[in-house]
């Protein structure tokens, strides 16, 4: 299974993602420069965290118009797997590949801390190695993760099982004080209707090895591999 990590000017988690795929999972991975227009041969595209284009105007607003994003939209439309982490999630929202928008954190603070997440949907290509309702720990590092979407679409996300991760306490209680940014419904990550595009604010690539003190994020990447193995050729024919 071949992964591609998109590099925008200002991406800064691209090397971490590459490292996890290459060294931890032992799978082929390449960087994809933002000027690239061809994603043939990739089985999963990762939009990493960072501050693409300096986050000028609005976060993700300029990145979404880079040449590679047209290719990513086409890739996603054909059923290809797309994972957006932090800034990558914000870009997916700006590009309209996932619904909603990010506002400044309610506290106005840049939050760099570990958070607890409840896995709300374990039946996706990105979460099948977790259990539904399981509480996991991941780091967040962002100033704008305050997710917003209008009430009708929020209801649809809830109904269709598109809310994948929610901020919670260590005991799994979804409570305001467990929410680092004020996001609606404590939402930390959502997917599209077909489950093939996931965006999340926390950083699974920063917690994929025991030596880092936490390997909860590794199962997200392992989920992708396991989904791929169970659906051989599915992505390849869709995206090859």
């Amino acid at each position: 299974m071949k992964f591609g990590v998109v590099v925008f000017p200002g991406s800064n988690c691209d090397m971490d993602c590459y490292h996890v795929i290459d060294q931890v999972l032992g799978h082929p991975v390449s960087y994809i420069w933002h000027q690239e227009k061809d994603l043939a041969g990739y089985d999963c595209i990762i939009l990493p965290g960072g501050f693409s284009y300096g986050d000028y105007l609005r976060i993700g607003a300029i990145a979404r118009f880079s040449p590679v994003m047209d290719a990513v939209a086409e890739y996603a439309a054909r059923g290809g797997l797309v994972l957006g982490i932090c800034n990558g999630f914000q870009i997916l929202l700006e590009a309209g590949l996932l619904p909603g928008a990010m506002r400044r954190n309610e506290s106005l603070q840049f939050r760099c801390q570990d958070v607890f997440l409840r896995v709300e949907n374990a039946a996706t290509p990105f979460t099948n190695q977790y259990r539904r309702g399981e509480v996991i720990r991941m780091p967040v590092a962002h100033g704008e993760g305050n997710y917003y979407v209008d009430p009708e679409i929020l209801a649809q996300l809830e109904r269709e099982g598109q809310v994948v991760f929610r901020y919670c306490t260590g005991e799994g209680e979804v409570a305001p004080h467990a929410n680092p940014n004020g996001s609606l419904g404590n939402i930390a990550g959502i997917c599209n209707r077909s489950r093939t595009v996931l965006g999340l604010m926390p950083h699974p690539e920063r917690c994929s090895e025991e030596i880092l003190g936490n390997a909860d994020g590794r199962r997200l990447f392992r989920s992708i591999l396991s989904w791929w193995e169970l659906a051989p050729g599915k992505g390849a024919t869709a995206c090859g």
């Binding site: 400044r104 954190n105 309610e106 106005l108 305050n146 917003y148």
Partner: peptide
Amino acid sequence: TLKQGILDPQGNA
């Protein structure tokens, strides 16, 4: 401007 009804943490501060 942020739409009416959208929380504006900066404005509140």
